[in-house]
Design a protein around this nucleic acid. Structure first.
Length: 223
DNA sequence: CCAGACGTTGTT
DNA sequence: GTCTGG
DNA sequence: CCAGACGTTGTT
DNA sequence: GTCTGG
């Protein structure tokens, strides 16, 4: 769950949202953000004491991986195992990030067909997912690739009608702890990885969103 | 000791 | 890198 | 998450 | 049916 989302926030809006310093990413609005793509996340840099906006590859690749291919299957990390799983535990301890989104997409089975929905906060602000990031070095080229994953949890009462998982949504008051700006035992952060209890807006959209090659503003229009 | 795995999703 | 299974 | 592919041979 | 790529 949470394998596709919308990310159209202008860099300047993300800078304001997170009060980030440093360079701004130069990205086009993305109405069909998919695994392996480069997408913006917010990280805290302990050396500068500032938050930064950085463009990472979606699908966390552990440092020990032989190649990037595992990243297609690590686009989500289950909250229940994030502190223990070999692929995620070191990132959970030291490399947490925030992932901004306008909406995420969810497909509902309707008989043999699948109807996509866009899901966003009913009260206005963008979604901010709890994420983890990791660095991986290509042994051949020596180049570093930074990747991220979105944490999932059990669904809220509202989302349970649609699916059995949902992405972890963090409120602003919890961003400092999640980013590691405040000293905290990683285990003390686990309670944050709970289903967001607020109201979400579900809107049926075009089936065209299924094909990652499609990326147009009208993908988020109600159908 | 070495070899091999290391992840999520949905569906039956 | 680190744990599990054989 | 969905869409689209889904193979072999020999050689270093 | 199951894996890979985006």
């Amino acid at each position: 769950m949470c394998g596709r989302y919308v990310q159209t926030l202008p860099a300047e809006a993300m800078r304001r949202l997170f009060k980030a310093g440093g360079a701004l990413p130069n990205l086009s609005p993305n109405y069909n953000a998919a695994p392996t793509q480069r997408l913006p996340v917010c990280r805290f840099n302990p050396e500068t004491g500032e938050r930064s906006l950085d463009v990472l590859r979606w699908g966390l690749v552990p440092s020990w991986a032989k190649d990037l291919s595992i990243g297609a299957r690590t686009i989500n990390a289950r909250a229940e195992g994030v502190a223990e799983k070999p692929s995620f535990r070191s990132a959970f301890k030291a490399r947490r990030c925030l992932v901004p989104a306008d909406y995420f997409y969810e497909w509902k089975k309707e008989g043999s067909a699948k109807q996509p929905f866009r899901i966003g906060r009913a009260d206005g602000p963008p979604l901010v997912f709890a994420g983890l990031w990791e660095g991986w070095q290509d042994k051949q080229s020596q180049e570093w690739v930074r990747t991220f994953t979105i944490i999932t949890t059990t669904p809220s009462a509202q989302m349970a009608a649609l699916h059995d998982r949902m992405p972890v949504i963090l409120e602003e008051e919890h961003w400092p702890a999640w980013l590691g700006e405040e000293k905290a035992e990683p285990a003390s952060l686990l309670p944050l990885l709970a289903p967001w209890p607020g109201e979400l807006e579900l809107v049926a959209v075009s089936k065209d969103v299924g094909n990652v090659a499609n990326n147009r503003p009208d993908l988020i229009d109600a159908v």
